[in-house]
């Protein structure tokens, strides 16, 4: 399956989905005017991947400093596709990164976790001074 690599812009995040390496990351700022359009290729990729993946587990890392409501919905849609693999016994780890003092972003992850009824792993980090 081809690697999906979308480079970040001032309003959109970097998306890197590599089935061969087992690396799945969404990082940066996600405030596109039309999130559905921006995330369409990632959504399609996730759908295909979820239908064909035969491994035991996958980890998706998400590290965003801004995300608008449209992005939340689109990322939830993508995560829903991955999480459907749970029915085949595949373990899904959603690793949600947030700056150590940024409770808003952590809370956003917790809300998304509750909506998906799937516990996230929370990883804090600190930007260099």
């Amino acid at each position: 399956m081809e690697t999906l690599h979308i480079h970040h812009t001032k309003t959109t995040p970097s998306i890197f989905f590599d089935a061969t390496k087992g690396e799945f990351r969404i990082t940066g700022r996600s405030i596109p005017a039309d999130a559905t359009v921006f995330f369409a290729s990632a959504d399609k990729w996730a759908e295909t991947f979820a239908a064909t993946f035969s491994g035991d587990f996958m980890t998706i890392e998400i590290m965003l400093d801004h995300l608008n409501t449209g992005s939340v919905r689109s990322i939830l849609t993508i995560l829903t596709r991955f999480l459907r693999m749970k029915s085949r016994g595949i373990k899904i780890i959603v690793d949600w990164h947030y700056e150590v003092e940024d409770e808003d972003i952590r809370d956003k992850g917790e809300e998304m976790s509750l909506i998906l009824e799937h516990p996230f792993k929370f990883t804090s980090f600190k930007y260099p001074e």
């Binding site: 405030i31 400093d65 801004h66 608008n68 700056e99 003092e101 940024d102 409770e103 808003d104 972003i105 930007y127």
Partner: peptide, 11 residues
Amino acid sequence: LPRPSRRRLVS
């Protein structure tokens, strides 16, 4: 501003 405040404001 602290980074979290900046984020909230931009949001």
